[in-house]
Simulated assay, not measured.
Amino acid sequence: MWSALLWGGISASAVVLGALAALFLRIGKRYIGWIMAFGVGTLIGAAAFELLGDALEDGGVLATGIGFAAGALVYTVFDVIVSRRGGSNRKRSGKDQSGSQAAGGADQSGLGIFAGTVMDAIPESIMLGASLLAGKGVSVVLVVSIFVSNIPEGLSSTVGLQKNNYSRGKIFIMWGAVLVVSALASMLGYLFLEQLSGEMKAAIGAFAGGGIIAMLCSTMMPEAFEEGGPLVGFIASMGLLTAILLDTFS
């Protein structure tokens, strides 16, 4: 249980590192896009090998298919709601998210960024904790994938919050809250899934996989290409290759 809490916190700490980099360093948008593209590739690999592969093996095609479709649908519904409340560009460092809004609208946009980031982190963290149930230790593929993808998320989202006139202190409190939520989600994923049958575990694993893939397509992929250009296709492929190698040798 405590290992799940620890690894959930470690993977989410990359958001804080990204925020620190955005606040104190000058990092070009192109490099942010490249890091994000690599994270996209590793997360695709993690979702395919660690979540869907295990789900198919443990629960079969029906449970996996239903869980995956449900995860993608639920994430999309929540993404639409969060986007309408100001979080549509939560991973976009180059866009002024406040626009011509009044102060209240800008605050709503900042809260949208925060809510969207929490929403993105929960399915990843749950399955990170669940990966410990196999008794073979934490999934290296999931830890690396989540950590790498969280760095550019912290970078881009922090820039967006700064454009909404959020102070450094308030930004750190928000990302600290994301870290705590991620760690708790990882621990709860371990505790909750431990009680379930293999078929239910498979369905929930596929559910998280569907949410992750929907998140990648709606937020990370567009931002990576927008900031990094055509080179992101190759970089994402290298991220996927990295996930394959980690899965093979871990």
Rank of each mutant, 00 (worst) to 15 (best):
L43P: 00
S93H: 11
T76K: 10
G65L: 08
L52Q: 05
G112V: 09
A106N: 10
A48Q: 09
I35M: 14
A47Q: 10
A55H: 11
I122E: 00
A72M: 06
F114V: 11
N89W: 08
D79H: 15
G65I: 03
V74C: 07
F114G: 00
G67D: 05
M36V: 09
A37T: 08
V82W: 02
G94I: 09
S88R: 12
D120R: 09
A102M: 10
V74F: 10
F24C: 09
G53S: 09
K91A: 15
G112Q: 06
T42R: 02
V40D: 02
G105M: 07
R84D: 07
V15E: 07
I66S: 04
F78Q: 11
I44Y: 09
I66C: 02
S88C: 10
I32P: 00
F38P: 00
L56W: 04
A55S: 15
D107K: 15
F24A: 07
G39L: 05
A47W: 00
L20W: 06
M36C: 09
G94A: 11
K91H: 12
G59R: 03
E57I: 12
V118K: 01
F38S: 04
W34R: 11
P123F: 07
L51Q: 05
F38K: 03
I27L: 15
R84A: 10
L128N: 01
G65R: 01
A72D: 00
S109P: 05
T117W: 01
G59P: 02
S83K: 07
A48H: 10
S125C: 12
G60N: 07
L52R: 02
L17C: 14
F38M: 10
E57H: 15
A63L: 09
G65T: 07
A21F: 10
A37K: 03
S83E: 08
L73T: 12
G104C: 07
L43Y: 01
I44D: 00
I66R: 03
N89Y: 11
G104I: 05
G94Y: 08
V74T: 13
R30D: 12
G116V: 02
G116L: 03
S88G: 10
R90M: 15
G129S: 09
S88V: 14
A103H: 12
S93M: 13
G41M: 05
M127H: 14
A46F: 06
L43T: 04
L73P: 04
I122T: 01
L20Q: 11
A55M: 12
Q97K: 15
K29T: 13
R92F: 11
R30C: 10
A121K: 06
D58H: 14
A72P: 03
G110V: 09
D79Q: 12
D96R: 04
L73F: 13
A21T: 15
A106V: 06
G129T: 08
I27P: 00
R85F: 15
A70E: 05
S100G: 13
R85E: 07
G116K: 04
T42W: 03
K95Q: 11
Q97S: 14
I32N: 00
I32K: 02
D58N: 13
I32D: 00
S88N: 14
I35S: 13
